[in-house]
């Protein structure tokens, strides 16, 4: 069963939850073969009921200590632009669609999402273009996000500090 996991982190992002559960978006998800939709809604005012959607199996919760398991089980992750969620999803090597909250201005977290999008590690849209993106997106263009090299840091520091 193909699963989609939607996460908004510690804040609220009602726009995203509303759009992704709209009949149009659900239709696109179904057309792509997704059957299960899990929503982490944070402090948002919308907590959809599991029987509110006939087309997909729907599950919604506010917070969990760790969403690692949800990410691991997902075939597609739709996330807010939070650095933590982005890095965790890419680290788990899952396709990621970031939905930018265009009502939040000057959010430095956008920097990372934008850069990772430029480097083809994730797809990028806003709530109003979500349905269109779900329809047209091509997950095959995404390239894996390889881990960084802490060893380079360690070698540099060893040399700088004279560690033998």
């Amino acid at each position: 069963m193909k699963r989609v996991f939607v996460t908004v982190g510690t804040t609220s992002f009602d726009d995203l939850i509303e759009r992704v559960t709209s009949p149009e978006a659900v239709q696109e998800l179904k057309a792509r073969g997704y059957q299960h939709l899990v929503l982490q809604v944070g402090q948002g005012s919308i907590l959809p009921d599991s029987d509110s959607c006939q087309e997909l199996t729907l599950e919604a919760f506010r917070f969990k200590d760790s969403i690692a398991e949800n990410i691991k089980c997902a075939d597609l992750v739709i996330s807010h632009a939070g650095a933590g969620s982005c890095l965790e999803t890419l680290g788990a090597d899952k396709p990621l669609l970031v939905v930018v909250n265009d009502k939040l201005m000057d959010n430095h977290q956008l920097e990372l999402a934008r850069q990772l999008h430029q480097d083809s590690h994730l797809l990028y849209c806003t709530p109003s273009t979500l349905t269109e993106t779900l329809k047209t997106m091509d997950l095959a263009v995404l390239s894996p996000f390889l881990p960084g090299h802490p060893k380079h840091f360690a070698n540099f520091l060893d040399r700088a500090l004279g560690v033998q």
Partner: peptide, 23 residues
Amino acid sequence: VESICRVESLSLSGKILYHISDY
């Protein structure tokens, strides 16, 4: 070490410590 999240601008701590840090 500036966080990976900082792509175009330094954090507030970074801006301050840029001047006094050794590495």
